[in-house]
């Protein structure tokens, strides 16, 4: 149990799990320094303490301790990593950057960190880890436009970096530039075509842009149906995907309202000139809505009961889905 916790990537974790992980730091380091590893030179060659698990654990503990503010343990893990992989290792450079960012107490120190990043990049502009850190730091100090500029330069050099495209999309969404965000997410999907969560993300961004635009009803209808298709793809790639079905239900609800408002009958075929698909028919949307409702109800029922093999949904997502379903039944009762 404890070893699997140590191997869990800490970025995905909640504060509770981070705390549990950071509390394991002291026993782990105590177990690392035994009298065996302190043997003099020729003898210590006989003992092999190297393993993948060891260094993954060091990195995870470093990140967890940094999050919980346990800088002493974090620097201990970092020193062990530096001693093993050298100061110029790209990954170690990034970890040093993280450490300095986390321990910087004021604006001037953060600018120092930024200068050190610039220094590294002047020597070797291909250290992508540091280029990403630089963009992340710019975003963190509240300069999103400069971060966007940095990312665009990075993506010019390496256009298949899906992570950077996804980050750029998020920055654009925060700025309200939905069209650019959609473009970035489409680039992500070109690299990782099976990523069901990115399909759902694209559906969400399209839905946001459809809810925001003051544009004509036709434009809104087109964006909404595009969003619905993205959610359909995400649940096609992953059955029982709560987020996908939630999005599918919301978009089809909205589409039903919009489609009923439109008077003229739908043209069934795609536009041959632009290659755009026609909006879906009313029956198809109704069927999809029913399917999404049924699936959501099943997930909520079995997920909250904690049936075997259905315990993986997050409680927050489950309660959101339950609220959505409750809202629906209230509307019918009225």
């Amino acid at each position: 149990m404890s070893t699997t916790l140590l191997l869990q990537p800490p970025t995905t974790s909640t504060p509770q799990t981070t705390l549990a992980l950071a509390q394991q730091a002291a026993p782990f380091f105590a177990a690392q320094s035994t009298w065996l590893s302190a043997l003099p030179y020729p003898l210590n060659l006989l003992i092999n303490t190297e393993s993948q698990e060891k260094w993954v654990t060091h990195e995870n503990l470093f990140l967890a301790c940094l999050r919980t503010g346990d800088t002493a343990s974090a620097s201990r893990a970092l020193e062990a990593l530096t001693a093993r992989f050298g100061k110029t290792n790209e990954r170690v450079l990034v970890l040093w950057g993280l450490y300095q960012e986390a321990t910087a107490s004021n604006q001037a120190e953060l600018e120092e960190v930024m200068k050190s990043y610039d220094e590294i990049l002047r020597e070797d502009p291909t250290v992508f880890g540091i280029r990403k850190r630089r963009a992340a730091l710019l975003k963190s100090v509240g300069k999103p436009t400069e971060a966007i500029g940095d990312l665009i330069k990075l993506l010019d050099a390496s256009p298949t970096d899906a992570e950077a495209w996804a980050e750029l999309a998020d920055l654009y969404v925060a700025q309200g530039a939905y069209e650019q965000a959609v473009y970035c997410l489409e680039e992500v999907l070109l690299v990782t075509a099976n990523a069901w969560n990115m399909h759902a993300r694209l559906g969400e961004v399209l839905f946001l842009s459809a809810s925001k635009t003051e544009a004509a009803a036709g434009e809104r209808l087109k964006t909404l149906s595009e969003s619905m298709r993205r959610f359909c793809r995400s649940v096609e790639l992953c059955e029982g995907y709560l987020r996908g079905y939630y999005g599918l239900k919301i978009t089809t609800d909205r589409l039903l309202e919009t489609l009923e408002g439109v008077r003229k009958p739908q043209t069934a075929s795609a536009d041959p000139v632009t290659g755009e698909l026609a909006p879906p028919s009313l029956e198809a949307v109704k069927k999809l809505n029913q399917l999404a409702t049924a699936k959501l109800a099943e997930i909520v029922r079995r997920g909250s009961a904690g049936e075997k093999g259905w315990d993986g949904y997050s409680p927050a997502e489950l309660s959101a889905a339950r609220d959505l379903l409750d809202r629906d039944t209230q509307k019918i009762q009225r």
């Binding site: 970025t11 705390l19 990034v94 986390a102 963009a135």
Partner: peptide, 20 residues
């Protein structure tokens, strides 16, 4: 593909510390 949304490369460590 969770890494595309968690994005360890762009980890906002100061934000995470504050959250914690």
């Amino acid at each position: 593909y969770a890494g595309l949304e968690e994005r360890a490369g762009f980890l906002d460590i100061r934000g995470k510390r504050k959250e914690f």
